[in-house]
């Protein structure tokens, strides 16, 4: 199972990295979302994988590591705020610059 999760992490990271290297803001936003999934999952996996072992005292005999979970929980919420911020930034830039190229200058086509 660990190998599968590791491969999944790799695929998520690779997709995210590839997308944030694209030239259009929307692709970069998608890339960031995937990358933050990858980062969250990576942090979570640092607590190792556990089945039926929630970190609730008395619920199970074993407990998964609660610390990465707590960290990831806040990371998810902040990631959401950051996504919202980046999205608005992308919107703002498309309206100000009349194109959605990350460099602010679109060499290939007419302004949209």
């Amino acid at each position: 199972m660990e190998a599968l999760v590791a491969i999944l992490l790799g695929v998520l990271t690779a997709s995210g990295v590839f997308l944030i290297l694209r030239a259009r803001t929307f692709s970069v936003v998608l890339g960031l979302t995937l990358l933050s999934h990858a980062v969250n999952l990576f942090l979570f996996s640092m607590g190792r994988l556990h089945t039926n072992a929630p970190a609730v005292i008395g619920e199970a005999a074993q407990h998964a590591d609660p610390l990465p979970q707590a960290l990831v929980l806040t990371a998810i919420v902040i990631g959401f705020a950051m996504t919202a911020f980046v999205v608005v930034l992308a919107l703002r830039s498309v309206l100000e610059l009349k194109n959605d190229h990350v460099d602010g200058v679109d060499k290939n086509e007419e302004p949209i």
């Binding site: 992490l9 690779a14 990295v17 290297l21 990576f42 996996s45």
Partner: peptide, 21 residues
């Protein structure tokens, strides 16, 4: 970009596997 993304992906996969095991 595909090369860079693949390297990043493989790196993360190996690292996480190494830690998880």
């Amino acid at each position: 970009d595909v090369v860079i993304a693949s390297i990043a992906g493989i790196g993360v996969a190996l690292l996480s596997f190494a830690v998880m095991t």
